[in-house]
Every structure is written in C-alpha cells, then in structure tokens.
Design a protein around this nucleic acid. Structure first.
Length: 463
RNA sequence: GCUCCCUUCGUCUAGUGGUAAGGACUCCGGCCUCUCACGCCGGCAACAGGGGUUCGAAUCCCCUAGGGAGCGCCA
C-alpha cells in the first residue's frame, strides 16, 4: 500500500489538510506501506519555496514523516511537480496522438462570458467544444503563429463511469455532465487533474484519501488514466471539515491552522489525536502515539458526515498531552524564560506542582511569576474577599506559620482555633492571599516550595 | 441551474432489521478534602420531517427540508 500527501505550497497547513495528510499517513503506516510527499507547485503565481518549507516543517513537527519526498528523494522522483515538466509533456503528446486531447484557443474572457451565459440560461457550464474539431491546417497555422492554446481532454459524451470509493462505496457519474477539462495551461504547465492523477499513477500510489471536494473530480481522473493505460489508484473521499460556526472553513481567516496551533503551544500529539478523531472513530479515548493511531486506523471506521472544528475538544487532548509529557519535554515546552523566577534546584518540583494546572507554556510562566516572581496580582473582588476575611484571620495564620513546621496544617490549625472557620471560608482566603487566584495547584506543596519569607509577607499584607 | 454528497445528544461519534440507542468533550452533582484545580464516580442530553417495506426499523426504499461540494488556464 502506497499513499501520499500532495500539498500545493500556497500557504500554511490548516486543520483540513493536516487531517488529510494524517489519514493518508495512518493508512500507510498501519498497513506497513509507504507514505510519500509530493509538492504540487505548478502554479507559480501562488506557490513559493518559503511556503513549501513551512509545510514540510509542519508535517515534521506533527511527526508525519515520509518515506519518499522532495527532500529525501526516492525511486519515482522528482517529488516536486515543478521539476517534472518533461514528464507531463511526454504524456500530453501521447494523449494528443491517440486523439484524447485537443488544443483550444478560447480565451479567458470568452470562457467567462460563456459560463455566465450557460448559468443564465439554466444550463450547466459545460465546455461546448468550440475548438474541438478545428481543421488540421488551422491548428497548424495558429501554432506556427505562436498562439499558445490550452489542451483539453475529450470526454465521451454518453455513458456513465462507475467507480468504487473506499469510504463511500460505489459511485456513478454520467459522462454527459462532465465537460472537456484542461490538461495543460497555455503557459505549458499541467493543470491539477492532469499532474495530480498522472503523478499518482507514475508514483505507484495505490490509495488516495482526499477531501470530499474532489469527489466529482474523480471520474475525470479515472478517464484520463484509462486513456493512458495507467493504473488507477483507489480513491476515498473524506468528509469536509467545517468551522466552529458550522460554515465551511474559510481559507484565509479562522484560527484552525498550524501557525496558530504551534504558536499557542499545542503539543503535536494533541493536534494529531484531535484531528484523527474528526471523521474517524477510535475505540479508545486515550491519548495515542502515531503508531498506536495507525494500528487502530481503519477505512471502514471513517465517517461520511462533515465534522465541525471544536476548540474545546482540541483543548481536551492538549490537557492529556500535558499530563503525559515527560518532565524534560514539559520543561522545554514551557521554555527557558518561563523559569526565570524559579530558584535553582526547584524546577522539577515546581513543574510537578503546576502540571495539572497548565495547558499552555504561558500558564507555566504565569505560575512561576505568581509563586516566585512579581507575586500575585489582586483584583478588586479578591481584595474584597481578603478584607472580608479580616486581619484577625491573617494574624492567626502568621502565628500558625511560626509555631509549627511552617506547613499548611500549622496555619489552618491556628486559624481554625482562633476564628472557628473551616472549609471554603478557611482555604479560600489563604489561597487568594498566597496566589491571588481562585484556583490553582495544591496549597500544601505551594507552602513547601515557597520560602518562609515570602509566605510571611503575603499573609502579613492583610493583617 | 445541473450533477453528486451528507443529516444520531450542544460538539466529536458508536450503531449496518430486534439495544434500556453506547462512548468522549462541554455542563451539572458527588467523592478525594476542612478549599479550587487535577483525578475518580454519577447525571442531563440525540435517531431532521413525512410516507412506505417488515412481525419488528436509527438501520432498507421513496419524498420533503436543511447543509455541502463540483461544474475554472485553483488545487
């Protein structure tokens, strides 16, 4: 089994592409097959090397390593379409020779007008073959005049094409609904249908998982490959991904992209585990490695209904990833600067203390600052609660602190004896005085990790 | 406009003629604890609507509604 991911480097990966890449990766890895990467950079206008580099970097970050690709090479390269123009020319000639394609000189503006007219007349905008039967000498005349045509594939106008989608089952398309599509642009570069299908065949790709938006493109590619006598891969169409609002994900806007995910400090396994469950059902609700995901990935567990991006669920996987990360990894995730205020030798204890309370690197830095740096910040509400607890509360707390082992029990014991408060009334003011926050790491270890001096001053402030 | 696809708790989903319609996230309650968070346990909550077929439909068929995609010298 050979699968591939074929991004066009026109921007950063978003959740949709990422999930397509992931599913192809999981399918290949789960079957012991190969996963290849092919860059579809034939649109010079929109593609850039910088974007390509970012895409590769994002894939690596996720852990989706490829067996063959533009950087690693492989037996059926090159793996960037911009380097394969000779191949496309060769196969286009074959199609021309066999009568499967023809040049078309219709201009862009003529085409647009034609489409408008069709739509207005209530007809599908299917190309009308105006140029399909141009006499030989006229073709020759135009070519020698240096006018560059596009080349269109001649689609049979009757009959139906059946194919088996490995996710949706049997599909049937009426050929009459399919117009003669462009194989080669007038600048000589291959159009998507051509380059994409041809490369899959030439690279011996056996399975293609792609977005549902390609579903109605499938018959074109099959027709093309059949005309060339090349093997047709098994196609499977993944349900669409919708934005938070249930509308299609906008290409430009939206926060569901790799740029945002990485900048936010998400763990790659959090992103992968979340994406893996968008349109695929796994039995386990545990955080899994890519290998484990691959082992449990199955085409018949892929869904057909569109899924909605839900950042709350992504956050759940991030929480699991934080809990599962090793100490060193968590530390490097938090970043060196997060520990600026943490005394030497305290890092591990500190990290263990805050781990259950953080989802982002900034959360770690935030706790470091509260505990060891600038100290807690008090909102008006918090100050009110603290004032309400009263000076007597904190005098007792300080007494307790000095009397015992400087631990939590000594403090709470003293306050309880003096004021008779317990439960929330006892713990909330202490937590607030020490951290300024209503929730956070456990109090006992906080007291152990904080210098006596600090505790004294934080409690003393409210006396 | 034409062709195709999709529709189970708020969200992600299990389910392929007989289930009390299951799980996860969110939310709520309890426990850990004399506090909050973490964790654990429990609870609320769904078959888009209408017709068939069948002893029996979430599951099969038809229609309706809603959503989406494609019909590009974009991929």
């Amino acid at each position: 089994m050979r699968t591939r991911f074929a991004p066009s480097p026109t921007g950063r990966l978003h959740l949709g592409n990422l999930r397509t890449a992931l599913f192809n990766f999981l399918l290949a890895r789960g079957s012991g097959g190969a996963f290849l990467l092919r860059v579809e950079d034939t649109d010079a206008e929109r593609s850039s090397d910088a974007a390509a580099a970012l895409v590769l970097d994002d894939l690596k970050w996720l852990g989706l390593t490829w067996d063959e690709g533009p950087d690693t090479g492989g037996p059926v390269g090159p793996y960037a379409q911009s380097e394969r123009s000779g191949i496309y020319g060769e196969y286009l000639d074959r199609l021309r020779a066999s009568g499967h394609c023809y040049p078309c000189w219709r201009t862009d503006t003529e085409l647009k007008a034609f489409r408008r007219k069709c739509l207005a007349a209530g007809r599908p905008p299917i190309y009308d073959r105006e140029w399909a039967r141009l006499p030989e000498d006229e073709v020759a005349r135009r070519e020698s005049a240096g006018q560059r045509p596009v080349f269109r594939f001649r689609v049979p106008d009757t009959g139906a094409l059946e194919s088996e989608d490995c996710i949706r089952g049997r599909q049937s398309f009426a050929l009459a609904d399919i117009g003669d599509f462009v194989l080669q642009r007038s600048d000589g570069t291959p159009a998507f249908f051509f380059g994409n299908a041809l490369d899959d065949a030439l690279m011996s790709v056996t399975h293609v998982l792609r977005g549902e938006d390609h579903l109605s493109n499938t018959p074109r590619q099959i027709l093309l490959l059949d005309a060339l006598g090349l093997p047709v891969p098994v196609y499977g169409h993944l349900p669409l991904l919708l934005g938070e609002d249930g509308r299609p994900m906008s290409k430009r806007r939206g926060s569901a992209g790799m740029g945002e995910f990485r900048a936010a400090g998400l763990f790659p396994e959090a992103v992968a585990n979340y994406a893996a469950r968008l349109g695929h059902a796994f039995e386990s609700g545990d955080l899994m490695t890519l290998d484990e995901l691959a082992r449990h990935f199955s085409l018949d567990k892929v869904g057909r209904a569109p899924a909605r991006y839900d950042p709350i669920q992504l956050e759940h996987w991030q929480g699991l990833a934080v809990q599962a990360a090793s100490d060193p990894r968590l530390a490097s995730w938090a970043g060196e600067s997060a520990f600026r205020d943490v005394p030497d030798g305290m890092r591990e204890r500190f990290l263990g203390l805050v781990r259950p309370n953080v989802h982002r690197p900034a959360d770690v830095a935030g706790w470091a600052e509260i505990l060891f740096g600038r100290g807690p910040a008090f909102s008006a509400e918090v100050e009110a609660v603290l004032a309400d607890a009263g000076p007597e509360f904190f005098r007792a707390a300080l007494e307790g602190l000095e009397s015992g082992d400087h631990g939590l029990a000594a403090i709470t014991g003293a306050v309880k004896r003096r004021l008779g408060v317990k439960g929330r009334a006892l713990f909330r003011p202490l937590r607030l005085a020490l951290t300024g926050a209503e929730s956070g790491p456990e109090l006992a270890p906080i007291l152990e990790i904080l210098p006596d001096e600090t505790v004294r001053s934080r409690l003393g402030r409210w006396v």
